[in-house]
Nucleic acid binder design. Structure first.
Lengths: 210, 210
DNA sequence: ATACTTCTGTATCGATCGGTACGGATAATA
DNA sequence: TATTATCCGTACCGATCGATACAGAAGTAT
């Protein structure tokens, strides 16, 4: 992100590790082991740095986790924002669900989804991390709802459709796919689930159903 | 379960607490905080006993968690086995999904589902608890698959239906509902998701669709 | 009453947790 | 080259983790 030689000054000894690569490694550890399941020793080992360097560069464990979440959203989970831009509501739903199914079963990534794993692997609902993750869930659903409401206005979805219900349905299937991926379901199995879920999708646009 | 005065002998000093009530309390703590999020101090406080009594009666933390899971399956999550006995495949699916939606948002229970919360709140996939929970997931899906295969044979589902895909779909929605319940979704919202999911259900029996 | 068995409570174990103090090393600035 | 600011590595902090040793209390059996 930040250019290495952009800042002219950079007084003092420059850091010897790549902060981006280190954050990437931290993200993958959290992704695999969850928030509570990840210790600082796990992190420093995977990031290739020692503890004081971690604290100087990223703050404490919670702060590092939030940065890892942001990187996850902008990187591996970018399928979400790309899905919103699909031209049809059905395309949005399909891209959302296929996205998590493929990401969560990629052989070069940890299984499952960092958001889901992180949400359920911090203390109880009073934990600030839990609250932030719950807020993010609500925000994503709201974004989907607005997108589907637009589709109703465009005739892309039948007039009687409930955008909120459809948004929550897509989110629910996505969370379920993430849980299944985290517990060893195969990509082929999950893609069949996506197809089944899409059978529930209300026809609209050129071919209205009911 | 075990009667207090049934055994005639019971040599030595009898225990002063109700083991069933204590296990019930432990189950609820795990349900609310997850496996890693629950400490022994949390447990002893909720169970009203001290640490050596806990170890004598239930073994270590992992053993207690397994007993809590068994109690959860036989108690709050008994809707699963009841759902299997529904006369129609659609009834099975509906009862499964409504079951988790209502259980996970009950005001007198912790939010979410102990199985899902437990699975994602133990270490990584190498953890024995994680392996057992994954196996339980696979077992539940297999039971659903057999039930739906029977429904195909009975004409309750269309001949071309894929019982495995339907079973995984129902399980996926259930997991997703549990995640949503754990992050604060309301019962009304989740029941609408169930209705949306049931729109995907293939018509059969009296009213074949395609 | 005595012996024996089991439970309860305190007090503590070694290990690990997240987080830091501090000194030596390294580079840019002057 | 001297100064200054930052980073790296060791070694350690208090707190908490899961798990237990031990002694006294409370029962049954003889």
């Amino acid at each position: 992100m930040k250019a290495k030689k952009a800042s002219p000054a950079a007084l003092g000894r420059p850091r010897e590790f790549d902060a981006d690569a280190a954050l990437d490694a931290a993200m993958r550890v959290f992704w695999q082991k969850g928030y509570l399941g990840t210790s600082l020793s796990d992190l420093t080992e995977a990031m290739g740095i020692n503890r004081p360097s971690l604290y100087a560069a990223f703050g404490n464990k919670e702060s590092l986790f939030r940065k890892a979440l942001a990187r996850y959203s902008a990187g591996p989970a970018a399928y979400v924002s790309r899905a919103i831009d699909e031209p049809t509501a059905r395309g949005v739903a399909e891209r959302m669900m296929r996205g998590v199914a493929e990401l969560g079963t990629s052989s070069c990534n940890p299984a499952g989804c960092l958001w889901v794993h992180g949400t359920l692997s911090c203390g109880d609902t009073s934990d600030p991390v839990h609250k932030e993750l719950s807020a993010h869930r609500a925000s994503t659903i709201a974004t989907l709802r607005r997108r589907f409401a637009r589709a109703v206005g465009e005739g892309d979805l039948p007039a009687g459709s409930d955008p909120g219900a459809l948004a929550r349905f897509v989110a629910t299937v996505n969370f379920g796919l993430a849980v299944q991926a985290a517990t060893g379901a195969s990509r082929a199995e999950l893609l069949r689930v996506v197809d089944t879920a899409l059978d529930a999708w209300p026809a609209g646009g050129k071919a209205a159903r009911s």
